[in-house]
Design a protein around this nucleic acid. Structure first.
Lengths: 217, 217
DNA sequence: AGTTTCTTTTACCATTTGGTAAAACTACAA
DNA sequence: TTGTAGTTTTACCAAATGGTAAAAGAAACT
């Protein structure tokens, strides 16, 4: 063998390093989730990890890069759940229900990611704009088209699918983004999986048949 | 008359001052809406108004006070729209529809207020917590109770009213908070009143009868 | 014109913040 | 035991940030 193995001289470091980097990303995500990019000092992240600011900078020499990493980490996972699963056999209702549960599951599993995303959007999506246009919009348009097909086929009513998505996105992400308000209203310290299950039940029910008992039309 | 009139010596100042203060509050609201309390420097607000930072500090000597003013300004108006109107004659459906339109109207008229509110909640509502408990929660509980009465009376289905409110709050506020994402998805520069009207139509329809054409149950 | 009140500018200042540079330390392989 | 790569600490720094103090300007009433 002519080429030396690059892994040879860095066994232990790599493993520990990966772990620490993961802790940093998690702490950064949590911090950015609360106060956004501008409102979060590097110091705060370092403190949460339990290392010095300079040490943090050794691992992530640039705040914006760290922020982009945090965004990226969630984004791919995120994007997947933002689109309908393309199960050919499933009915419209099934796909929609599965969609709602998947999005709520994500809000439960990764509330910080949801909040970082929310901060970014509220700030005008300066960094995400291109990504949203190139990755999310195509998905969105495909799913909107699919819903229009469903409407034509008589599977669902003739609604505006765009607003359906905005509503579902909002209603599912709110259990992450607005968790503090929701738990305050419910009078509990924090939301449990049960709360998310109930949210899913409510949402799927409402989407299916509405909440009015005997609508005249 | 023994007592001097306190208004006497400050006619013109008061009028102009009130105007400038209003401009400052509006600029502050806009800035806090984008980057939240921690992420917004006083300098940025001053610049938006077109005055120096020191001059801004002359009017609002303390950043947190300015922020509280901004919050307070929106809050009362806000709270009113967070509760059902208590029209004795109106049907459940009417009240709910009126509610949805009112909240969307507010999102359209005051998107910045909505965003400031969102930042505050995402940061754990450090300042609003007490206010929400003392002012919003009672309203919320009253309205939840009312919906349970409606359910018992057979006017609406047996859903969990709590989640109904979380959904409506989220779905209406998203047109303010996530406007940049929504307009990006729709391929338009900004949202118009027409978009909000369509959102209201969609939401009221879905809440009334759902979107599935012939639900089996 | 002079005085008073309100407003704006000028001059600072301590702390915070993102980031550099290099020294000191640690673990481990040769 | 010594060299080396990886890591942490120490020592700084310039710019940004929230805020103070006081001088200078404007307006308006006497």
């Amino acid at each position: 063998m002519i080429y030396k193995q690059p892994e040879k001289n860095q066994r232990k470091p790599n493993a520990q390093r990966a772990q620490l980097e993961a802790r940093i990303i998690a702490a950064a995500e949590h911090a950015f989730a609360r106060t956004g990019f501008n409102g979060t000092p590097m110091e705060a992240i370092a403190e949460a990890v339990g290392i010095s600011k300079q040490n943090l900078i050794y691992y992530y020499p640039n705040k914006e890069n760290l922020y982009r990493r945090v965004l990226q980490k969630t984004l791919d996972m995120w994007l997947e759940k933002m689109a309908f699963s393309d199960d050919e056999d499933a009915s419209a209702t099934d796909i929609i229900r599965h969609y709602i549960r998947g999005k709520l599951e994500l809000s439960y599993e990764n509330p910080d990611g949801s909040k970082v995303f929310a901060h970014e959007i509220m700030n005008g999506a300066p960094i995400l704009k291109d990504y949203l246009l190139s990755h999310l919009q195509p998905q969105f348009r495909k799913d909107v088209a699919l819903m229009k097909k469903w409407a034509k086929a008589g599977e669902i009513k003739a609604i505006e699918p765009e607003h359906f998505f905005f509503t579902i996105w909002a209603a599912t992400q709110t259990y992450a983004d607005f968790a503090s308000q929701i738990s305050l209203m419910l009078g509990k310290k924090k939301l449990t999986r049960k709360d998310f299950d109930k949210a899913a039940d409510f949402l799927t029910d409402m989407v299916s048949h509405g909440i009015v008992a005997n609508p005249e039309k």
